[in-house]
Simulated assay, not measured.
Amino acid sequence: MYILKRITTMILTVWIIASLTFVVMKFIPGDPFASDADVLPEEVLQNMRAKYNLDKPLPVQYVLYLKNLVMFDLGPSIQSETRDVNTLIADGFPASALIGIQAIIIALVFGLALGILAALYHNRMLDYLSMFVAIIGISIPSFILAPMLIKLFAVDLGWLPVASWGSWKHTVLPSIALALSPLAVIARFMRSSMLEVMNQNYIKTAIAKGIPTIGIIVNHGIRNAILPVVTFIGPLFAALITGTFVIEKIFAIPGIGKYFVDSIFNRDYPVILGTTVFFSVILIFTLFLIDISYRLIDPRIKLTSKGD
């Protein structure tokens, strides 16, 4: 029952986001062919608007848009004559997802490790060192870290390539640039949550009973402390795998973020609407999976909604 309600809510949320995006796009002054008004005859402009249904009343455009959306057809791209929106997303998403997944893995592995070590060695050297790394990660934005990484590892040392796309080596620097900030946040979350859990009475009782420390940390400490981190990971995962526009621009990654930015400048309505809906679906579905994962991490949590 809970899952059915969640799926209904997810569909409703996607519809609201798609409708709001459509309204906002239509009320922005101008149209995709405004820049061609001085060079093309009016008849040609009218034919082009008719091709993309821009000559029809807004209610009709909205109905056609929803109809195509239900059929998983995001429409043709106005700027690209050879590829529709579905194709653009299919072409750009793998690169964005690869960078995002690698960044998530780096952030999780090192963020959780730093947070756990900082909590276990509270007010000692490892704690101070871990929190220093976290402060650095939070303080330096990715668009500043990226040129620094390029200067050091690509220009000065020549270890890794940049401004191109092909092998795994091209993914290392952008993944690190994306990972540092969430790594720092995860480390701080994990540290504070772990400190709180390790001070609970049941932990002290387990220690008093002589249960091995490593077992207490793994089975009770980390398992209970990681829940706040999981809440943060949901939207972070969706944001990273759908492309971070600035990083993709700096490293010349042919990801979905590039198409989204270009579509805004070119007033390519179908691409803007399509990518926005795609981002929303990824985010909403990820949050749904995060809710399910709570039950797997802690069996005491029940997946119920009000009235169940």
Score class of each variant (00 low, 15 high):
Leu160Glu: 03
His122Glu: 13
Ala146Gln: 06
Gly210Tyr: 10
Val197Lys: 07
Ile138Arg: 14
Ser164Tyr: 06
His220Trp: 01
Ile135Gly: 02
Val162Trp: 06
Ser192Tyr: 08
Ile217Arg: 00
Gly115Gln: 14
Gly115Phe: 12
Lys209Ala: 02
Leu126Ala: 11
Val185Lys: 05
Met148Ser: 13
Ala146Phe: 00
Gly158Ile: 14
Ser193Thr: 08
Ala208Cys: 14
Ile116Lys: 07
Met190Arg: 05
Pro212His: 12
Ala187His: 05
Arg124Ile: 05
Ile136Thr: 06
Leu149Gln: 02
Ala146Pro: 05
Pro212Arg: 15
Met198Val: 14
Val109Gly: 09
Met131Phe: 07
Ile144Thr: 05
Gly111Pro: 07
Ala154Gln: 09
Leu120Gly: 06
Ala208Ser: 15
Met125Glu: 00
Ile217Cys: 08
Leu129His: 10
Ala184Arg: 15
Ser130Trp: 02
Gly137Asn: 06
Asn123Ile: 01
Pro182Thr: 10
Ile214Ala: 14
Arg124Thr: 15
Ile176Ser: 04
Leu108Glu: 04
Ile176Leu: 06
Leu180Arg: 03
Trp168Ser: 11
Ile222Lys: 02
Leu180Glu: 01
Gly115Lys: 04
Leu108Asn: 07
Ala208Ile: 02
Pro147Glu: 10
Met190Asp: 06
Pro182Asp: 06
Trp168Gln: 12
Asn199Tyr: 00
Ile216Gln: 11
Val109Arg: 11
Leu152Tyr: 03
Lys209Gly: 10
Tyr128Lys: 09
Ala187Thr: 08
Ser167Arg: 11
Trp168Asp: 15
Ile150Val: 07
Ala163Tyr: 08
Leu180Gly: 03
Ala107Gln: 12
Ser181Cys: 05
Ala154Val: 11
Arg124Trp: 01
Ala206Ile: 14
Thr213Asn: 09
Asp156Pro: 00
Gly158Met: 08
Ile217Ser: 01
Trp165Ala: 08
Thr213Gly: 12
Ala134Pro: 05
Gly221Met: 12
Pro174Ile: 01
Asn219Cys: 01
Ala154Asn: 13
Ile176Thr: 09
Ala187Gln: 11
Gly215Arg: 15
Gly158Asp: 11
Ile116Arg: 08
Val155Asn: 13
Ile144His: 03
Trp165Glu: 10
Leu178Arg: 05
Ala107Pro: 00
Ile140Tyr: 04
Ser193Arg: 12
Ala208Pro: 00
Leu157Ala: 15
Lys209Trp: 03
Asp156Met: 05
Ile144Lys: 09
Asn199Asp: 07
Lys169Ile: 06
Gln200Val: 01
Trp168Phe: 10
Leu114Gln: 15
